[in-house]
């Protein structure tokens, strides 16, 4: 049997103590040990972005991180976005703009946007397009995803105009 390690993960604010194989990727840990199956797996080599989650607030491909290396870190997944009052602004924009069809890439897209919007410098359409280009979608042709993220990025920026550190080269 492959070597195992006991790790602690904060997933969407809840602590989890987990026994994982050293070789086990974070996305497998999240899906099959934590039971947070909202995060999807579609390439397992870091290109498609379906498994994007936030690690300590930063978007990351959870298929490129070993679970054991995430020990002690805070993870946020798509399950954290909505609350009792309903969908968050990004989720609302995605449904309003028809930014999803089959929905398989959607959790990764949402977490990419959630973690990526604070890194945007001017929230221009081109900058948003570049952010969205991190992840693959096979259904929409991306235009409506860019629409939704652009809308929310500009809305959030207008509500909190603090520019990210390092912005404006």
């Amino acid at each position: 049997m492959s070597e195992r390690h006991l790790i602690e993960l904060q997933v969407n604010g809840e602590p989890h103590e987990l026994l994982v194989e050293a070789r086990e990727t974070l996305v497998d840990v999240l899906r099959h040990r934590v039971g947070a199956t909202g995060t999807h797996v579609a390439c397992e080599h870091g290109i498609c972005g379906a498994c994007t989650v936030l690690i300590d607030g930063e978007p990351a491909r959870s298929c490129l991180v070993l679970g054991v290396m995430a020990d002690g870190h805070e993870i946020r997944t798509v399950e954290s976005l909505a609350d009792e009052s309903g969908l968050n602004d990004l989720q609302e924009a995605f449904t309003a703009c028809h930014s999803l069809q089959c929905g398989f890439c959607t959790p990764g897209m949402l977490m990419l946007a959630e973690g990526g919007i604070p890194h945007l410098e001017d929230t221009s359409r081109e900058e948003v397009r570049e952010l969205v280009s991190a992840n693959l979608c096979r259904c929409t042709g991306y235009e409506t995803i860019v629409d939704a993220v652009e809308q929310v990025a500009q809305q959030r920026r207008s509500e909190d105009p603090t520019v990210t550190e390092g912005a404006s080269a």
Partner: peptide
């Protein structure tokens, strides 16, 4: 959409 957007798909 609601389920697909919340990870409940």
């Amino acid at each position: 959409d609601p389920r697909l957007l919340t990870g409940a798909g």
